[in-house]
Design a protein around this nucleic acid. Structure first.
Lengths: 126, 126
DNA sequence: AATTATACCTAAAAAACTTATGCATAAGAA
DNA sequence: TTCTTATGCATAAGTTTTTTAGGTATAATT
């Protein structure tokens, strides 16, 4: 006898018609969220971003997890595995190097946004 | 007898340590510049961007020309070839479709920037 | 005479995504 | 009980958009 395996396949509806546009900004988002919240796990990050942007920005898992692994490889993040409700969670937090890099990345973002604002001669402000 | 060919090879120093970061924004920049200036040619666009951003953003030719061709293929731009001082210039201008698309793209950019501003909980404003 | 600025172009590679899977447990709805 | 949704991790193939690195040519400047 063996256990009966129940595994359901289901369709996902990631990222519908939500606003695209962003290149290196995913790393910046991750770093900044970790700076503010101390430690977070992947799924939590996707939900947080969705919540903050009222569902306008959806981080796909295919983008998020490789990004987290890369940041970890660059020693900007530390990982800590936890088991909650029999489910795995990988908590990430900034290293010292990561904290410095966050400052740099945020400056670059501001620079970029200022340049774009000037370039398109925007009437709006934030 | 044949003419003596004089052709100099030289090194280029495109895009030094200048601010990276931007994905679909190149199309938006091009469209907006054309909206403001009526018609422009490729080289002029690169110089204009450099000028406006004080040299911080340098559009590479390898990105610009394919982008212009793509926008033309999508019928957002019209081309007009001119010869000035025995040198070729290709002037681009917005089509009607292109003018509409410019509005859309600018809205998307604003949306994106607002989202990023909220996400990183920025203290600065523009 | 040599270099720099002006002007176009393309192809190979890299970067950063989306899309499409796969696996697994818990909670809630039918 | 059964099915579905939510929670949680992951990778691989494909696409888009960029960088890097070439190529060709004329005019102006050093």
């Amino acid at each position: 006898m063996h256990k009966k395996i129940m595994y359901y396949i289901y369709l996902r509806n990631n990222a519908m018609g939500n606003s695209k546009l962003y290149k290196g900004s995913l790393h910046t988002i991750i770093l900044k969220l970790l700076e503010e919240n101390g430690k977070m796990y992947g799924y939590e990050i996707t939900q947080k971003v969705k919540e903050i942007t009222n569902g306008e920005l959806n981080i796909t898992e295919g983008a998020l997890y490789p990004a987290l692994h890369k940041l970890e490889a660059e020693e900007l993040l530390d990982v800590e595995v936890a088991k909650v409700d029999n489910r795995l969670r990988k908590y990430y937090k900034l290293t010292e190097k990561g904290t410095k890099e966050t400052v740099t990345k945020l400056k670059e973002l501001e620079e970029y946004i200022r340049n774009m604002h000037t370039l398109v001669n925007a009437k709006w402000s934030i």
